[in-house]
């Protein structure tokens, strides 16, 4: 188990001075909110963080994060998507951009803004106008043929997280096969296997995000 760090992902460095925007997408129930909470806990002492949640139903995700006290209330914003979670992260990113801008205006310098998509299907993909980098989260128990089938989210995300590996045996899923298939459809881009229930701090994913933040800062520093 572990992230494959050797691959240099598509690196869209944010324009100097603004936060790195990291999209977190994936199907309903795959663990996006748990991963968002894990990243907040792991990174909040090192970086200035904020979160935008896109929830198809309510502000439930934002409320979950607030209750878990992973960040102060005013660093979490909820966006409603009019029954179209993928539209809000891909075709029409207005509301999310507004939310990110408002967070930035409220808190001044931010290093990282996590944009958590509402649960959606396998074709969902963050627009590059919204997210510099994106993570796609799959449920290992949700069918081990999903990575093989691919789709924009699985194939193009900068990091694919296969979560709930602890449940895979119960669901008859072959995690090793999932990882193999994923690496193949992803052209070698990294895959992380996690069990947020067993390791709620998601160290592999946090390490990947730290690397991305370092590279973004390096790129910003190197910019003329």
């Amino acid at each position: 188990m572990g992230a494959h760090h050797d691959h240099d992902p598509h690196e869209a460095a944010p324009p100097a001075g603004r936060a790195l925007r990291l999209g977190i997408g994936g199907p309903v129930g795959s663990g996006k909110t748990a991963l968002t909470a894990a990243l907040c806990r792991a990174l909040r002492d090192e970086y200035a963080l904020a979160v935008v949640t896109n929830d198809i139903y309510t502000t439930e995700d934002a409320d979950f994060l607030r209750r878990a006290a992973v960040l102060p209330d005013d660093r979490i914003t909820a966006v409603r998507t009019g029954c179209c979670p993928h539209t809000a992260i891909r075709d029409d990113i207005s509301a999310n951009l507004d939310a990110v801008e408002d967070l930035q205006a409220r808190h001044g310098r931010l290093d990282l803004v996590l944009v958590e998509s509402g649960g959606d299907n396998l074709t969902a993909l963050f627009s590059r106008g919204l997210a510099d980098l994106q993570i796609f989260v799959l449920d290992a128990a949700g069918g081990d043929d999903v990575p093989r089938k691919g789709g924009p989210g699985v194939a193009q995300a900068d990091l694919l997280v296969i979560n709930k590996t602890d449940l895979a045996p119960l669901a008859g899923s072959d995690v090793a096969r999932m990882e193999r298939d994923a690496l193949r459809v992803r052209g070698g881009k990294p895959v992380a296997l996690t069990s947020l229930r067993e390791r709620p701090d998601a160290p592999e994913v946090a390490a990947w995000v730290r690397g991305a933040l370092r590279r973004a800062r390096g790129a910003a520093a190197a910019a003329p």
Binding site: S94, A95, D98
Partner: peptide, 11 residues
């Protein structure tokens, strides 16, 4: 309606 101006989230 495809104009990316946020209209899809308002009823």
């Amino acid at each position: 309606a495809r104009l990316p101006a946020g209209g899809h989230a308002h009823s």
